[in-house]
Write a protein that binds this DNA or RNA. Structure first.
Length: 672
DNA sequence: TCCTTTCGTATTTTT
DNA sequence: TACGAAAGGA
C-alpha cells in the first residue's frame, strides 16, 4: 500500500499539537505511524533523535523500526528511538538510578520473582497463607499502575484482604529496594515519580523528545499515560494511535478511557478516524461491526472495505472438544490440499492456552506443521530461570531472591535448616545472604560442615563476579555453568537424555543471546555492560529476535490476546461457548464487554475466511459438561453465518459435505 | 537432606 | 486430568 487514503494523509500531516488517531482494525495504522515518522524527518526538518515512538511489544517496535528504515535513508533519521514503554523506562532508570536511590547492577524482578518474594514475605511477616499471594501480587500491581502508594492503599483498603495486601505492599516495596530490585511496574512508575520530583531531570528528557508517537494507545495504564504527558510537556506535540474496540488488557491495568481523557487534557485535540479496512472481506467486517455494536461506545466507528463480500462465516458445532480439534485439523489439511494454500495462511485462535493441547495432538496426528505462539515461554523454563538467577546474583549481590533460588540448585546440600540460620544471621547483621556466606563469624551460627558448604558457595560466586567484571563476562558465565556441573544436573532432573540435551541447548541459547547483546552494545559504542544485557534479557528483547527467523510454513496457534495486531487469510476461532469465550470469570465479574472485544479482535484477524467452532460437550475438571453456544454467536447477523452440526441444516447439503470431507481425507491417506 | 508418594485442588488473558 | 504442595520414609 504505497498511497495513503485522505484520512491517513490527514493523520500523517497533522504535526502540530495533540492528535488522536482512532484506527480501526486493519486500517493501516502502522503505515500511518511509520509514514508520519518519515514525514517528520523529511518534510518537517526534525532529526531522528528528536523523535520517540512507543509501543507495547518488542515485536511491534522491531517491525516499526524496520519499516521506517525502508522509508528514511541517510543520516537525518539517525538516533530515532522506537521502543517499548518498558524498555524506555529501563533506559531512564539506567541513566538516573542514582537519583532514584538504586545502586548499580539492579535486578529486574519478573512476575515469578515477585511471587517468590511475596510468598517469603507473607510467610515470615504476616503468617498469611501462601496461596493468598497471587491475588496480593495482582492488587499490588494494580496499585502501582495507578500510582497508589502503600500508605494510600492502606487508607483506602476495602475489607481485610485489601488491608493485608496493602501492608504486604509496604513491606514488599521496602524489601525490593533493599534487594536493589525493580519490578515490571517500577519500570514505568519510577521514572514517573522521578519526573514528578525532579523538574531538572524531566526537562532533560523533554528536550530530547520533540515529537512523541504512541501505538496501541488504548492499552496504556495510568502511569504510562502520565509518562506520556510528562515527556510531552508544554509542547504538546504528539500523536497517539489506538482503537477502543480492541482494548483487551483492562485486566492488567490498561485504561481505554485514556482515549477520551485526552479530550479533556488537550482541548485542541485533533481526532481522526480511520475506518477503511484493507484486510478483510466485506462480510467479515459486517459481522465484526454488528458484534461490537453490542458494546456502548464513546467514539463509534464502522469499518468498511472495497473488497468483495466474501464467503459466509462458517460455524461448526462439534460433538465434543476432541471432534472439534479433529475437525479443524482435517479442515486445514483439506483446504491446504484443495487450494494449494500455505499452512502459514491458517491461524487457530483460542481463549486459553490449555485449549492448544488437543489441537496440537490432532495436528501432529495429521502431520500438519504448526507453531504455538506464547504459552510456555522460554523464560518460564526452569533451566532458563536458574541461569538467569545466577546472572542476577553475579551482578547484584543484594538480590537475595536470586540467591535463594539457586543456592541449592544444583544440589549443594544446603537445606532448609541451614538456610534458616543463614537468613537469621544476615538479617541480624543487615547484610545480604551472599555477603553473610563469606563472613567468618557465621561459623558460630551453624555446624562446621554446613558453614563450609555455604562459605564455599559464597566465595565461588564472589570470584566469578569479580572475574566477570575484570575480563570477558561471557567466559565467566560459561565457566560458571561448567564448574557447577549444570549439565549433570540437567541429566538428573530431566525425564531423559534427549530432554536434558534440549534444556542445555536452551541454556546455550541464553548465553549466546547475552553475547550478541554485549557485542551489539560494543558496536554501537553504547557503554552498556553485562547488567544491561541481562536486564534486556528479562524484558524478552533478545530472544524474540532469534525466534523471529523461522518463517517456515506452519499453521499458527495462539490465544486471542496474542493474535492482536496480526492477520491471516484463514482464521479458525475455537471454543465459541459460554463460559469459555465470554469466560466464566469475566461473566461473574461483569466484564463481558471486554470479552466481546476479544471476540471482535479474533474476527478481524481474518482476511478471507473465518470459521468458528464449538464443542457441545467438553471435559471440565475431569468430567463431561454440556456446553452452551456463545452469546456472541447470537449477536452476529444470522444471514451471514452458515451453521453446521446444529441439526437444522439441509440434509442433502450435509451428505455432500460429509463426502467432500471424506474425499479430502482419502487423498491424504493416499499420500501417507 | 532428599526423594517418593499421596492427596487435593484448580484451568484467562501477559508487558 | 494434571499439576503442585505437603507429608512421610530412607
Amino acid at each position: 500500500m504505497s498511497r495513503l487514503n485522505p484520512r491517513q494523509q490527514e493523520a500523517m500531516q497533522a504535526v502540530s499539537g495533540a492528535v488522536l488517531v482512532l484506527a480501526g482494525a486493519g486500517s493501516g495504522k502502522t503505515s500511518v505511524i511509520t509514514r508520519k515518522i518519515a514525514y517528520l524527518i523529511e518534510e518537517c526538518g526534525l532529526k531522528g533523535h528528536q523523535i520517540l515512538a512507543l509501543t507495547f511489544t518488542n515485536k511491534a517496535a522491531r517491525e516499526m523500526k524496520e519499516r521506517v528504515g525502508q522509508l528514511v535513508t541517510g543520516k537525518a533519521g539517525k538516533g530515532l528511538t522506537v521502543s517499548t514503554f518498558h524498555n524506555l523506562g529501563l533506559n531512564i532508570i539506567r541513566r538516573e538510578y542514582a537519583a532514584l536511590g538504586y545502586r548499580p547492577g539492579f535486578s529486574i524482578f519478573d512476575a515469578s520473582d515477585v511471587l517468590a518474594l511475596l510468598k517469603d514475605l507473607t510467610h515470615k511477616e504476616f503468617e498469611a497463607a501462601e496461596d493468598a499471594c497471587e491475588p496480593i501480587q495482582y492488587m499490588i500491581s494494580n496499585w502501582k499502575n495507578d500510582l497508589v502508594t502503600p500508605v494510600q492503599a492502606l487508607a483506602g483498603a476495602n475489607g481485610p484482604e485489601q488491608a493485608l495486601a496493602a501492608r504486604v505492599y509496604e513491606a514488599y516495596e521496602k524489601t525490593l529496594k533493599l534487594y536493589n530490585g525493580v519490578d515490571f511496574d517500577d519500570l514505568i512508575l519510577q521514572p514517573v515519580k522521578l519526573f514528578q520530583e525532579r523538574e531538572d531531570i524531566l526537562q532533560k528528557w523533554q528536550n530530547r523528545v520533540r515529537y512523541l508517537l504512541v501505538d496501541e494507545y488504548q492499552d496504556t495504564n495510568s502511569s504510562q499515560y502520565l509518562l506520556v504527558k510528562q515527556l510531552v510537556g508544554m509542547r504538546s506535540n504528539f500523536t497517539v494511535v489506538g482503537d477502543d474496540d480492541q482494548s483487551i488488557y483492562a485486566w492488567r491495568g490498561a485504561r481505554p478511557e485514556n482515549l477520551s481523557i485526552l479530550r479533556a487534557d488537550y482541548p485542541s485535540l485533533k481526532v481522526i478516524m480511520l475506518e477503511q479496512n484493507y484486510r478483510s472481506t466485506g462480510r467479515i467486517l459486517k459481522v465484526a461491526n454488528e458484534l461490537i455494536d453490542h458494546n456502548p461506545h464513546e467514539f463509534s466507528k464502522a469499518l468498511w472495505s472495497d473488497k468483495s463480500y466474501g464467503e459466509p462465516i462458517r460455524v461448526i458445532s462439534c460433538r465434543n472438544e476432541d471432534a472439534e480439534a479433529e475437525r479443524i485439523a482435517t479442515e486445514i489439511l483439506q483446504q491446504h490440499l484443495q487450494n494449494q494454500g500455505d499452512f502459514k495462511d491458517f491461524a487457530v485462535l483460542y481463549r486459553g492456552n490449555h485449549q492448544s493441547r488437543l489441537m496440537e495432538m490432532k495436528l501432529q496426528a495429521y502431520k500438519v506443521p504448526y507453531k504455538i505462539n506464547g504459552g510456555q515461554s522460554f523464560f518460564g523454563r526452569t533451566e532458563v530461570k536458574d541461569i538467569m538467577a545466577y546472572l542476577k546474583l553475579l551482578l547484584n549481590p543484594a538480590d537475595d531472591n536470586a540467591f535463594l533460588r539457586i543456592v541449592n540448585t544444583p544440589r549443594r546440600e544446603i537445606g532448609a535448616a541451614t538456610l534458616e540460620k543463614l537468613v537469621n544471621y544476615a538479617s541480624m547483621h543487615s547484610v545480604s545472604l551472599i555477603e553473610a556466606c563469606q563472613e567468618s563469624s557465621l561459623s558460630h551460627a551453624m555446624s562446621n560442615a554446613a558453614y563450609a558448604r555455604v562459605n564455599e558457595f559464597g566465595s565461588w560466586i564472589a570470584s566469578l563476579a569479580e572475574q566477570a567484571e575484570r575480563d570477558d563476562p561471557i567466559a565467566a558465565v560459561r565457566q560458571m555453568i561448567r564448574e557447577m556441573d549444570y549439565e549433570d544436573w540437567m541429566l538428573q532432573t530431566s525425564s531423559g537424555p534427549p530432554m536434558a540435551e534440549k534444556r542445555m541447548a536452551n541454556v546455550e541459547l541464553l548465553v549466546e543471546s547475552l553475547k550478541t547483546s554485549l557485542d551489539k552494545a560494543v558496536d554501537k559504542n553504547d557503554n552498556a555492560d553485562m547488567g544491561d544485557a541481562v536486564a534486556r534479557l528479562v524484558l524478552l528483547d533478545i530472544l524474540e529476535r532469534q525466534e523471529e527467523e523461522d518463517d517456515t510454513d506452519r499453521v499458527q496457534l495462539m490465544t486471542l490476546h496474542a493474535a492482536k495486531g496480526l492477520e491471516y487469510p484463514h482464521v479458525f476461532m475455537m471454543g465459541m461457548e459460554e463460559d469459555l469465550l465470554p469466560h466464566r470469570n469475566s461473566i461473574d465479574e461483569g466484564n463481558v464487554e471486554e470479552e466481546r472485544r476479544l471476540c471482535y479482535v479474533g474476527i478481524t484477524r481474518a482476511r478471507q475466511t473465518l470459521t468458528m467452532t464449538l464443542a457441545r460437550k467438553r471435559k471440565q475438571f475431569g468430567e463431561m459438561i454440556e456446553t452452551t453456544a456463545s452469546r456472541f454467536l447470537d449477536e452476529l447477523p444470522a444471514d451471514d453465518l452458515e451453521w453446521e452440526g446444529r441439526g437444522d441444516e439441509d440434509p442433502a447439503k450435509k451428505v455432500e459435505k460429509g463426502q467432500a470431507a471424506l474425499a479430502g481425507l482419502k487423498g491424504l491417506f493416499a499420500d501417507l
